[in-house]
Design a protein around this nucleic acid. Structure first.
Length: 646
RNA sequence: GCUGUUGUAGCUCAGCGGUAGAGCACUUCCUUGGUAAGGAAGAGGUCAUGGGUUCAAGUCCCAUCAACAGCUCCA
């Protein structure tokens, strides 16, 4: 007999070799019907795996990530089985479960899989699932595994197996399909009920640009048709919050083919929004001891040769600008750091002057490859809310913590609760990619790790994601459909101060090297506004929104009064306009609600006589009347309340 | 840059070999209406660009540009 401990702490005795499924059955048939995988001592396994020793277990259903994972992983195998039948000789790469669904990377040889082929693959999957095939696990030696896939002619699997250690290899089979796989899987493909293949795309084998591009098919499945319908409806809803759509609807920004791809044009309303954000950050930065500076959009090529950026990115950047005078070369600035370093160098500095914090909303230009452009989130010309902090080594951690505070203030103010923090370090296996000494890198990396610990910030450590001159702490926020975008970033840099020969005079009257922090709490104005749009669905907070109120006269007779009210509000810094179109009030309300204007002020005969406005709050309906002055005071108080949170 | 998809009126889209369409927006007129779409008339398009096939090309083919979903990249 063995002892099984359940999540509630209770312990039961079972026969040695009992399976997860039998365990579930022993509790209730309903549980057995719903359970998808089992966690045994923290390792997720198939329900059909026998348990031989005492263990702590957890039964995973659909609502657990482990349950979904097994379900979607088996769905990937089901899709592969369908593909094998439809495209004989197809070779398979990898086919994992992902956050929402699964994919499989396949090499269809000379055949081409197009989006229009997906329904046929779906139909085949449904046909196969109806056969309710058992999914069988088999542990296998490395040699047997190699022989199987060599014989099948699947070089991708052969390559994968070659990298595995003997004794840890398992196959999963259902019907005529066998795959190299660690599992865990469902017991039976019949559990897969609702299937939707979503898209087809190219994906490089093992993520390597130099290797063959396979065909990646994305799909998602659910135990119930209704759940699939709900998911597809969710995707439709998310599309409505797409910043590119809302940006157009609310007249925030646009692009022009004539101007060029990836070069956003900010419209008047978008400019108000952006200026409000800039003012907000400037106000915070002032409190934190930053000084605003302004630098030109170009600089001599030498500047980036010194920084190391030219060697690293020169070939893939906008190429140098040549002047009529031969031999002069300028670059559009792809970052602001060299300019700020030159500002630092304009004066000698004492240790007493540090830290020095130069901030600039600096517009930079980077040649992103065409396929990488994406709305406002990935563009070729953008404005960083940049700053460079020059400090003494002993000030580094404190300065780093203060920057984190600024980022938290901003995320708080805009209600970005679900951000993720990522510490990006060097790739220890590829030191060639980076400049600077090991000693400096180690100091910089540990400064970031320590700062996060001090703040109690849980951050993912990712190797190989550092900038070439230093490690960084990035803050990622998801868009409407769950794509992660890097917003705030803080980078520690010992290298540029050396390359630019930056100095300060210490208390010992000797020259010392300052440390530099690069930081951008928004990341860029473009990307930040994009993510903000998707988070708010275009319903911006009152202090930010381009139009705070609109006045709606009941009929043209009250247009004069409406404009009078508008002027009065304008004098009190309310951003207001008048909808004096020849339309009925119902129409004006509808149109302005759709423009997500927070307050609609309706004025007719009653209001004009009493010198008031009828206030209607967006989404909440009629709020009764107020005097014009009272309305202005209330709005400004609401805005001020927000601005005081820091 | 790579794979797949898509470019028709300001916007959303229909038309898929035979003289360019709808709804919304826009203009003018009627209406002056009290909390989410009042009515009528009108104007607006080298069908992304450049080639080709055809008696005839938004419609078929090729190239280029741009956008979309991924991949790769992201100082």
């Amino acid at each position: 007999m063995i002892h099984i401990t359940f999540p509630d702490g209770s312990v039961r005795e079972y026969a040695k070799g009992i399976t997860g499924f039998q365990l579930a059955e022993s509790i209730s048939p309903r549980l057995a019907a719903e359970v998808l995988a089992i966690g045994v001592n923290g390792v997720t396994l198939d329900l059909s795996r026998p348990i031989e020793d005492d263990a702590t277990i957890q039964l995973h259903k659909w609502d657990d990530p482990e349950g979904k994972h097994a379900y979607w992983h088996s769905s990937a195998h089901l899709m592969a089985e369908a593909l094998q039948e439809l495209y004989p000789g197809m070779k398979f790469g990898i086919g994992p479960a992902i956050e929402n669904g699964f994919y499989y990377d396949v090499d269809p040889g000379d055949a081409v899989i197009k989006e229009s082929d997906l329904p046929a693959i779906e139909a085949k999957m449904i046909e196969l699932a109806a056969r309710k095939e058992q999914i069988v696990r088999k542990e296998i030696s490395k040699q047997e595994a190699l022989d199987f896939f060599k014989q099948k002619g699947d070089e991708y699997k052969v390559e994968l197996i070659s990298d595995l250690t003997d004794g840890t290899i398992s196959f999963y089979s259902q019907g005529d399909f066998t795959d190299l796989c660690r599992g865990p899987h469902l017991q039976n493909t019949g559990e897969i009920k609702a299937i939707k293949l979503l898209s087809v795309a190219g994906a490089y084998w093992r993520g390597d640009e130099k290797r063959k591009q396979l065909t990646r098919i994305y799909g998602i499945t659910f135990p119930k048709k209704k759940m699939l319908d709900e998911y597809l409806a969710f995707l439709e809803e998310a599309k409505k919050r797409d910043h590119r759509k809302i940006g157009k609807e609310l007249e925030l920004f646009t692009f022009s083919q004539a101007v060029g791809a990836g070069l956003p044009l900010w419209l008047p309303k978008g400019t108000i929004l952006r200026n409000r954000l800039e003012d907000f950050l400037k106000r915070i930065q002032k409190r934190f001891g930053y000084q605003q500076v302004i630098t030109p959009h170009i600089g001599q090529k030498e500047l980036w040769v010194t920084s190391g950026h030219y060697a690293k990115y020169g070939k893939d950047s906008f190429q140098p600008i040549h002047t009529p005078q031969e031999g002069e070369e300028f670059l559009l600035k792809p970052m602001n750091c060299p300019h700020h370093c030159e500002i630092y160098k304009a004066f000698p500095h004492s240790y007493k002057d540090l830290p020095i914090r130069y901030a600039e909303f600096g517009t930079v230009y980077r040649y992103e490859q065409s396929g990488e452009l994406h709305g406002l989130t990935r563009v070729r010309g953008f404005t960083q809310d940049d700053a460079h902090i020059f400090c003494r080594p002993d000030q580094l951690k404190d300065e780093f913590l203060k920057v984190m505070d600024i980022i938290f203030i901003i995320f708080n103010a805009l209600d970005f609760k679900n951000f993720e923090a990522q510490i990006s370090l060097r790739d220890p296996n590829d030191r060639e990619k980076y400049i600077g000494s090991d000693e400096n890198w180690e100091k910089a990396e540990s400064a970031i790790v320590e700062a996060c610990e001090e703040k109690g910030l849980k951050a993912n450590l990712v190797l190989g994601e550092a900038a070439f001159y230093g490690p960084k702490l990035d803050f990622m926020v998801k868009d409407a459909i769950g794509r992660r975008w890097q917003l705030g970033t803080i980078q520690v840099d010992y290298n540029l101060p050396e390359r630019f020969d930056l100095e300060y005079t210490g208390a010992d009257n000797q020259k010392h090297r300052p440390v530099m922090i690069h930081r951008a709490p928004f990341g860029s104005m473009e990307r930040f506004v994009a993510v903000l749009i998707e988070h708010t669905g275009g319903k911006f907070p009152l202090w930010l929104t381009p139009e705070q109120a609109v006045i709606l006269p009941i009929s043209e007779k009250f247009n004069d009064y409406a404009h009078q009210v508008a002027q009065q509000l304008d004098e009190q810094d309310i951003r207001v306009s008048v909808d004096d179109r020849n339309e009925k009030i119902g129409r004006k309300i509808r149109d302005n609600e759709l423009k997500r204007i927070p307050y609609l002020l309706i004025v007719g005969e009653k209001e004009m006589e009493a010198g008031v406005v009828a206030v209607r709050k967006q989404g909440e309906g009629d709020q009764g009347t107020k005097t014009v002055n009272a309305f202005a005071v209330d709005i400004n108080a609401e805005v001020e309340k927000m601005m005081k949170i820091f």
